[in-house]
Nucleic acid binder design. Structure first.
Ligand SMILES: [Mn+2]
Ligand SMILES: [Mn+2]
Ligand SMILES: [Zn+2]
Ligand SMILES: [Zn+2]
Lengths: 142, 142
DNA sequence: TTATCGGACGATAATCTTTATCGTTTATAC
DNA sequence: GTATAAACGATAAAGATTATCGTCCGATAA
């Protein structure tokens, strides 16, 4: 149902107060067809087939918009620069989805269970790294 | 025990077949004193106080060496470029520590339990994102 | 339908992070 | 002490992302 899809995307844009542009709509539709965890460059390469004149900057800007709107999600909250872990204790992380702040939380404090060391595909488990995604106290106030 | 610390670091280097240089040793000692999740730039700023002539490239190279040797650990396995999640299902990720390949694993398949939505510091939980760190099948063969 | 206006676009420069290059210096083994 | 390979510092280059800015277009209302 192309018409229905179009209406859905139109509504989606209205909900988020953004214009329904040709580039934005094609980008959305192309992304819907993709699998795995594509990078902006990979998305760009696909969209270019349908809108050859599109700019990489437009792809970045709209992916960010989609992520902010909750239409798509980024694989990792901390994909920025390299960070070194200085906490020797067994622990996991609380990551604020607003300000990206990373706070340690002890393994016991988090209270997860059941670590299998056999996983599909013959994957050999070394350890679990849990990110608790949410809103930190400061960002809840604002 | 400075002498003892020095011997420890010397042994550490010998185990990993790397030379004991002044820069490398100061870098190691400075990092040991740091807390949280510093970036290479932040480490560089600290080390520069003791070895003003050190290069940022040297900091990067040695942090990588330390991480490879298991002396320090990076906070996130996927801190590279932005990746968009295209899998709608509730799932987590298996991340290969050798080749960095990311594979989906269903939430039920992983079989974790207990999601608290109250965490220390008034952190409001949205979701859990689990990275299972390990070695993928391909890298196990090689 | 048309005029208006703010948002969106494309091109590209700029920024930020990380890596590669290369001549010089230094640690290690003999 | 000398030879050799590794490590260093300076800096260019690469890769990813963002900022800038002139132009264009979609949304709104006359
Ligand atoms: Mn930590
Ligand atoms: Mn996934
Ligand atoms: Zn926050
Ligand atoms: Zn692998």
């Amino acid at each position: 149902m192309l018409v229905n899809e179009a209406r859905t995307f139109r509504e989606l844009c209205q909900e988020n107060g953004i214009a329904v542009t040709h580039q934005r709509q094609v980008l959305y539709e192309v992304m819907k067809t993709m699998h795995g965890h594509p990078s902006p460059e990979e998305v760009y390469a696909q969209v270019k087939k349908k809108v050859p004149a599109i700019s990489l900057a437009t792809v970045y800007k709209n992916i960010h918009l989609f992520v902010e709107s909750g239409v798509f999600r980024e694989v990792s909250m901390h994909h920025g620069s390299l960070r070194v872990e200085m906490n020797d204790e067994s622990h996991h992380h609380m990551v604020c989805s607003k300000c990206k702040a990373i706070t340690d939380i002890g393994e016991k404090e988090l209270g997860l269970v059941s670590k299998q060391d056999k996983l599909p595909g013959g994957f050999l488990v070394e350890r679990y790294a849990v990110d608790v995604i949410g809103i930190c106290a400061k960002c809840q106030q604002a």
